[in-house]
């Protein structure tokens, strides 16, 4: 899955460079030419692009953790194989995106160290718990569904290595989404217990999916660097509306009820009531919905989510456990392959 939607507003940046070069650079973007690592680019562009690719890479490898918890418990051979392959894809996306970031000037090791010491962030949605198998189904359907919609727009961006990686990633996300849809359909068409499992997990993930695209952009977003330089190509609110238009009716047709929920500090739903806003607005053609709790969003981003500490600690554990292997191959000792 992905966490490409950087929910934190870009910092104020100064574009301090040769105006002629900048004009030429912006013209190239407007013409649809991809910017490559060797090309001239404003320092601010390089910094923002690194920030975006690194955040995305971090999100992929942290994103492998919640679902990884259920690999050993998957309920059939097919689901087990598919879940391993899915989590493996996240790791693969992380690996490719770290490479894109390395090209922008930061070593992989520095990025991993910044991640596990809390200096850099990853997508907020991975700070929520996965207490049942139903969460696995909902993550793959709702969150991967959101990720594909977002990444489709990112694949239309301007930075060559990132665009190529997005195109590659999107092919794999299609598998995640389809396998998720299959799991959700199986639960909702299954026993009473399975349906309850599906509904409970839906209640936990629907608001997280709405938050996935991030809060509303500034009114002049199109004039700000992120959109002007085609790092992102669609507003968060527009993506969210397209998402609801698609997923709300699909969920309801499957028998899922859309609720407005309150959660405890562990991310578990404590009370819920039907979302009365949900419904098609015939005039606009859009679905109305209740906005997620943006206070919660900011609280979790600042580190107080149900799983922030656990996720980062497990990554740190992995980093420390594996250090001796990285040291061993770093020596460049050439292995002789054994005789066949």
């Amino acid at each position: 899955m992905s966490g490409a939607a950087n929910p934190v507003s870009p910092p104020d940046i100064t574009i301090d460079c040769d105006p002629d070069k900048l004009a030429e650079f912006e013209q190239r973007i407007a013409d649809g030419v991809l910017i490559e690592p060797g090309d001239w680019m404003p320092e601010a562009y390089r910094a923002l692009m690194l920030r975006m690719a690194e955040h995305h890479a971090n999100s992929e490898i942290i994103g492998a953790l919640p679902e990884g918890e259920w690999i050993t418990r998957a309920p059939s051979m097919l689901r087990k194989l598919a879940l391993i392959a899915k989590v493996q894809d996240e790791v693969g996306h992380g690996q490719m995106l770290y490479r894109v970031s390395q090209e922008l000037g930061k070593s992989r090791d520095d990025m991993l160290r910044d991640l596990i010491t809390g200096k850099t962030k990853y997508h907020n949605c991975f700070n929520y718990p996965c207490p049942t198998w139903g969460d696995i189904a909902m993550i793959q359907w709702l969150i991967d569904g959101a990720a594909i919609m977002n990444q489709k727009t990112l694949a239309d961006g301007a930075y060559g290595p990132y665009v190529r990686t997005m195109n590659r990633i999107n092919m794999e996300e299609a598998f995640h989404f389809k396998s998720g849809e299959d799991m959700v359909l199986t639960l909702m068409g299954g026993t009473k217990g399975q349906q309850t499992m599906g509904q409970d997990a839906f209640d936990r993930w629907w608001p997280v999916a709405l938050m996935f695209f991030g809060p509303a952009d500034k009114p002049n977003a199109e004039q700000l660097p992120a959109m002007k330089w085609r790092m992102k190509t669609e507003r968060n609110t527009s993506l969210r509306q397209r998402y609801v238009n698609r997923f709300a009716p699909a969920a309801m047709d499957m028998g899922l009820a859309i609720h407005v929920c309150e959660k405890d500090a562990d991310g578990i739903v404590t009370s819920k009531k039907p979302d009365e806003a949900i419904g098609l607005n015939e005039e606009t053609g859009n679905w109305n919905f209740t906005e997620p709790d943006w206070d919660e969003f900011w609280r979790v981003i600042r580190g107080s989510g149900p799983c922030n500490a656990h996720r980062v600690a497990l990554r740190r554990f992995s980093y420390e456990q594996g250090a001796w292997v990285r040291r061993a191959i770093g020596t460049g000792a050439v292995a002789t392959p054994p005789a066949a």
């Binding site: 391993i84 493996q88 790791v91």
Partner: peptide, 29 residues
């Protein structure tokens, strides 16, 4: 081995080991 997915020492080998876990389960199947 699949419990290691996402936690192996090197990202590239994490992916390789995960492919092999999938093979092992597929071969069992």
């Amino acid at each position: 081995q699949s419990d290691w997915t996402g936690l192996a020492p090197i990202l590239e080998e994490d992916i390789a080991a995960s492919s092999m876990s999938q093979d092992d389960l597929s071969h069992a199947l």
